[in-house]
Simulated scan of single mutants.
Amino acid sequence: MGDMTVRMDNVGIVVEDLGAAIEFFRELGLELEGRTVVAGEWAGRVTGLGDQRVEIAMMRTPDGHSRLELSRFLEPSVIADHRNAPVNALGYLRVMFAVDDIDETLGRLRALDAQLVSDDVVRYEDAYRLCYLRGPEGILIGLAQELN
């Protein structure tokens, strides 16, 4: 195979309310890199949807290494909804974010109606405190605070 390089560029999340999703991920600590409408035949060839128009917001972590692409489909309309799939459903599960202070972060996200999926933040040995939570539209994310 040689020295192939691969790097995670972004994770895509489809939403109904782009503004609310941007606000939520901003509160988490991501920065809005850009916002645009993508349309045209080339875009439809990538997705297989043909003629499409999608409003996209690119969010970036402060270290610049990770990005979320938040998308709102204008055309064609949405035909399936996986936002409230249970944690043990097949397919993509969640994006995990490392944070400095999980309690402080949760406090800020709860002000935007984020809900823990279980009763508590769980401690894993002396290494991490972890939780899963649902943000706007039931989007599932994880938070992890390294204990050192």
Rank of each mutant, 00 (worst) to 15 (best):
F25D: 02
L28H: 00
L32H: 08
E33F: 10
R35G: 05
R35N: 12
T36Y: 09
V37I: 15
V37E: 15
V38M: 12
A39C: 02
G40K: 10
E41D: 15
T47F: 01
G50E: 11
A57V: 02
M58K: 05
M58Y: 07
M58G: 03
D63L: 03
L68N: 03
L68M: 10
F73G: 01
E75N: 02
E75R: 13
I79V: 13
D81Y: 11
R83F: 00
P86Y: 06
L90Q: 05
G91L: 06
Y92W: 09
R94V: 03
R94Q: 13
D100C: 06
D100G: 11
D101Q: 05
T105M: 02
G107N: 13
G107T: 11
L109Q: 01
L109P: 00
R110E: 14
A114W: 06
Q115R: 11
Q115T: 09
L116T: 04
L116R: 04
S118M: 09
D119K: 12
D119E: 14
R123K: 15
E125D: 15
L130V: 11
Y132F: 15
R134V: 12
R134H: 12
G135W: 06
P136Y: 07
P136Q: 05
E137S: 10
E137G: 08
E146G: 13
N148K: 03
